[in-house]
Design a protein around this nucleic acid. Structure first.
Length: 278
DNA sequence: AGTTCATCCTGCATGC
DNA sequence: TGCATGCAGGATGAAC
């Protein structure tokens, strides 16, 4: 599933392909993904506008368009883009929408489990209203004191806290497991029991892991690809996620998988023991 | 107010 | 082999 590294790589690839292109037509096959407005208004909003730049806030992809317009795209678990210079002879499965540009190129959005979302917004308030209103900064951007204050106020376990996009954004199930392993913290540890030094370690590890994965094009597990079927390589560097039954690289214990607060959670029972103070 | 849980959806793995 | 069941998960909104 795409998390911060994957979303960053998608944005980079999209910028290379669709920057400066002008929307000519939009075909929406699954209106459910296109929130708040009906598909015809979505099309009307986009047609004739040029894509100036694409960036991201956490896992949200932000298309900045002419006339102060914005389109938001969230890939959820399976969302993928494919770009074609010309109309392709065959289309891939599970196409949810096609964006046609004036120069004849096409951007296809597909998703086998259609959970992704698209929103249209204006520049003046897109950060003030959902879905971006509560999205926090990512680990590389957030101020340490802010991050520490948020954690120190939460009695909730650290794993779901790291997944909470209003605390810090961009971390999903894969990297939460990896960050906690690198920081030697049991996923059930209450966030407010973590010392300042431990929280520093979490943030440092989060930045390192997310940056390294970004450099390697993200993690291609559970079908992630950035653009046009390009896969990342960070899955080869995962230390606990997906490693159930394999030996821990630090202590050779067997990696365990549990279901924690509804999420598959991988950890090393020796390196990540539960402690009262940490 | 904070936290948990069901929901959205479909491909895939498992079990009979 | 074929069918039924269950599981996966990000974010949201309902329920506790």
């Amino acid at each position: 599933m795409p998390e911060l590294p994957e979303v960053r790589v998608v944005c980079k690839s999209l910028n290379e392909k669709v920057q400066n292109l002008v929307f000519k037509k939009v075909e929406i096959f699954n209106p459910k993904l296109f929130k708040e407005y009906d598909p015809s208004y979505f099309q009307e909003f986009l047609i004739g506008e040029k894509i100036l730049k694409i960036s991201n806030l956490g896992k949200n992809i932000i298309y900045f368009l002419t006339n102060n317009k914005i389109m938001l795209s969230h890939l959820r678990m399976e969302g993928k883009y494919s770009f074609y210079e010309q109309k392709p002879k065959e289309t891939l499965k599970h196409i949810q929408a096609i964006f046609y540009f004036e120069n004849g190129s096409e951007l296809h959005y597909r998703e086998s489990r259609p959970f992704g979302t698209f929103h249209i917004r204006y520049l003046n308030n897109y950060l003030k209203i959902d879905p971006l209103a509560k999205v926090a900064q990512s680990p590389g951007e957030i101020d340490f004191e802010t991050f520490y204050n948020r954690l120190s106020k939460k009695a909730l376990a650290i794993k779901p806290t790291l997944l909470d996009q209003s605390i810090v954004s961009g971390i999903g199930n894969i990297y939460a497991d990896e960050i906690l392993f690198a920081s030697k913290i049991h996923p059930a540890t209450p966030s407010n029991l973590l010392s300042k030094d431990k929280v520093k370690e979490i943030l440092k590890n989060a930045i390192e892991i997310l940056d390294k994965s970004t450099e390697l094009g993200g993690s291609s597990i559970n079908s992630y690809e950035s653009l046009n079927k390009k896969e990342g390589q960070y899955q080869n560097f995962l230390k606990v996620h997906t490693k159930k039954g394999e030996f821990c690289i630090k202590c050779s214990s067997k990696i365990e998988k549990i279901k924690f607060k509804g999420r598959g959670t991988y950890f090393c029972p020796t390196c990540q023991k539960q402690k009262d103070f940490i």
